[in-house]
């Protein structure tokens, strides 16, 4: 298992080099001169030449890529062209917020989705099951930003229960987490339901019942663990996607997160920020994937035995 994790971590190196190559090439072939972005359209040719020299924009491709990778290894992505502050500092001022929002949303989705999915599966075709499925379909279909805005109007403006925007106190967290987590909760619920239904009908569940085991133990011990694999996959993918930032939700609630920040950086062609941000998102996504694969191994010994 340790060997497997180590190997997977090593395998991240070529992946990340690939990611860096793509980031770099996209910026390289992008039209427009970076020095004009920094200095503005009215800059004199001398000033532009000076910046080009400073940024080594006239060096050959491979040398520029090499120094980009070299700097990235020391977490040095240069300075933001807009604020002139180190990219690393700018990103890490926001990444923890995004991480927190993503983590809480996934936990919310799991806490809602898994129990409701189990209940729905064990009471298949009951009134509860029908209502849960309908609500789930609705929650999955409603766009996050719309749900966010409606909550702002109802709970923020009219009822004044939660603050309408900002980030920092637990009261600030509730609405964004629900807005993002609702659709994931619905997907996880439906996933749990179908996965549980399959497990409940399997032979080993009949064996557990034939042992004289209580129905609750049969469901939560014997069936649930077997049903968790697809649920883990969905939760991991959701978490990974959210680490890139939930742009719309961050915008609605004015959360200083990575998503909104990255969109601004892209629209202002702030190349170092975009490069650093994308690389960080790629690294965290790879780590989440690895985490999911490790979780698989804990859940299912058949998968564990493949990790050699």
């Amino acid at each position: 298992m340790h060997k497997y994790i180590l190997r997977r971590l090593l395998m991240m190196i070529p992946v990340l080099i690939g990611v860096m190559f793509i980031i770099f090439v996209l910026d390289y072939i992008r039209p427009g001169c970076p020095s004009r972005v920094i200095l503005g359209e009215a800059a004199s040719p001398e000033a532009i030449a000076r910046v080009r020299e400073e940024l080594r924009l006239d060096d050959p491709f491979l040398i520029r890529f090499g120094s980009f990778v070299g700097n990235a290894l020391t977490l040095d992505f240069g300075r933001s062209w807009q604020t002139n502050r180190p990219v690393f500092q700018e990103i890490f001022a926001r990444f923890p917020n995004t991480m927190q929002l993503a983590g809480m949303s996934v936990i919310f989705a799991l806490l809602m989705g898994v129990p409701l999915g189990i209940l729905s599966a064990t009471k298949q075709y009951s009134i509860f099951d029908i209502i849960a499925n309908f609500t789930g379909l609705l929650a999955a279909a409603i766009p996050n930003f719309w749900l966010g805005m409606m909550m702002v109007i109802l709970f923020g403006v009219n009822l004044r229960i939660f603050p309408t925007s900002g980030w920092g106190t637990p009261m600030h967290w509730v609405m964004p987490v629900v807005a993002i987590g609702a659709s994931s909760a619905a997907i996880i619920m439906r996933m749990t339901r179908s996965s549980m239904l399959e497990c409940i009908r399997s032979d080993y569940i009949r064996t557990a019942r034939a042992k004289g085991q209580k129905e609750s133990v049969v469901i939560f011990k014997h069936a649930l663990r077997n049903a968790l694999i697809p649920v883990t996959t969905v939760a991991g993918l959701t978490f990974g996607a959210l680490l890139g930032g939930a742009v719309l939700t961050e915008t609605i609630f004015a959360i200083p997160g990575l998503g909104r920040f990255m969109v601004e950086a892209i629209s202002q062609m702030d190349q170092p920020l975009v490069q650093g941000g994308v690389l960080l998102i790629a690294i965290s996504f790879s780590l989440v994937n690895l985490l999911v694969d490790i979780l698989y191994a804990f859940i299912d010994p058949r998968i564990r035995s493949q990790y050699r």
Binding site: D203, Y204, R206, T207, H222, N226, P301, R302
Partner: peptide, 12 residues
């Protein structure tokens, strides 16, 4: 004792 030993034990 059940018919199919491949599926009647809990894999986990």
């Amino acid at each position: 004792i059940f018919q199919d030993p491949m599926t009647s034990l809990n894999p986990v």
